[in-house]
């Protein structure tokens, strides 16, 4: 605990008085509080901190299939170099960015549209709201299998309908074509998560004061003006959080591409997580997979930083005031 006893008086003493106690002092001062949370902290250290440490450690080693893990070979940064210089990594990174941005943007826009539509009173609004929530609550694995059969290149329902209606001569090849597979999976992902954006934005819409809308109408604002100048500014905070959460979820996506295509055909639907999984569990390249995971961890932490900043922006403003 810092002390000001015996310090010189004057401006420096005033600064010292204002200086925040350091973390050790705070822990000692609030030791009882910390003792209460100690068991939880220990559990977190074991289940979160240790795996992170072990993954980072493993990323500096090579793990040939003929050696036990305890005999792993130190290779320094070569796993990082191998991953970052691999052409497949570049391809998968581009696919991951496309997957994340497209899924996030379209899920958000679709969710926003749905939220705005459902914000108004109309007959059957509750039923429609429940229906639109179904994709979000359904199991991702089950949804992936359903969509896999809907898309099936030989016997899929969508392909059969498109042929029956005369749109195409033969069933559309959604999943077995390098050009169409990623877009097809993104559609499934948007379908799965737009409801989440919808729910978040519906909550945000509740905070828009109705008086402002009425005042804007009195001032002659049209629908677009009311949305852009009244509604949207109030949704900025929740939109930021929703977009960040969607981006984090999409960077971490696994189930849909893994179940529907396994990353194929010819790596065209691999994203970072599925590729890491393949390196680790398909190829037993634990070191390279760990390096890959650390890279993804850094990206996620960066996103997490902005997420926390967005969440606490109001707190900082209030503290500053």
């Amino acid at each position: 605990m810092s002390t000001i006893t015996g310090q010189a008086a004057g401006p420096s003493a005033a600064r010292a008085v204002q200086k925040k106690p350091n973390i050790v002092s705070r822990i000692i001062k609030h030791r009882a509080d910390y003792l209460y949370v100690l068991p939880a902290l220990i559990v977190m250290l074991v289940v979160i901190a240790f795996p992170i440490y072990y993954t980072i450690e493993l990323s500096f080693f090579r793990t040939p299939p003929n050696l036990q893990m305890k005999d792993k070979i130190w290779t320094g940064l070569s796993n990082y170099s191998l991953v970052l210089n691999s052409s497949v990594f570049h391809e998968v990174t581009i696919q991951t960015i496309i997957w994340t941005l497209a899924s996030t943007v379209f899920s958000f826009l679709l969710g926003l549209g749905a939220a705005l539509s459902l914000h108004r009173e109309f007959v059957g609004r509750g039923v429609l709201r429940a229906l639109l929530l179904i994709p979000y609550v359904i199991s991702a694995v089950a949804a992936s299998y359903v969509w896999k059969w809907l898309y099936h290149s030989d016997f899929g329902v969508i392909g059969a309908i498109s042929v029956a209606l005369g749109f195409t001569d033969e069933p559309i090849n959604f999943l077995d074509n390098r050009q169409t597979v990623l877009a097809s999976l993104i559609v499934v992902n948007i379908w799965k998560e737009f409801s989440f954006a919808m729910v978040m934005l519906m909550a945000g819409l509740q905070t828009v004061p109705d008086q402002l809308h009425r005042a804007a109408m009195v001032d002659g604002a049209n629908t677009w003006d009311r949305f852009w100048h009244v509604t949207f500014p109030h949704l900025k905070g929740v939109s930021m959080v929703t977009i960040l959460l969607l981006m984090v979820a999409n960077f971490n996506s696994f189930i849909i591409p893994f179940v529907m295509t396994g990353g194929g055909p010819a790596d065209a639907s691999h994203i970072w997580i599925t590729h890491i999984y393949q390196l680790a569990f398909g190829r037993q390249q634990w070191g390279a997979a760990s390096a890959y995971a650390v890279i993804l961890f850094v990206v996620m932490m960066t996103l997490g930083y902005f997420y926390v900043k967005a969440l606490t922006r109001g707190d900082e403003t209030r503290q500053g005031a």
């Binding site: 030989d154 069933p171 077995d176 010819a266």
Partner: peptide, 21 residues
């Protein structure tokens, strides 16, 4: 051969076989 061969395992061949496809 099935267009879906790139995403098929043998399990996915059983249905078309029993359906005479």
């Amino acid at each position: 051969v099935p267009t879906s061969a790139l995403t098929n395992t043998q399990n996915e061949n059983q249905s078309p076989f029993i359906a005479g496809q």
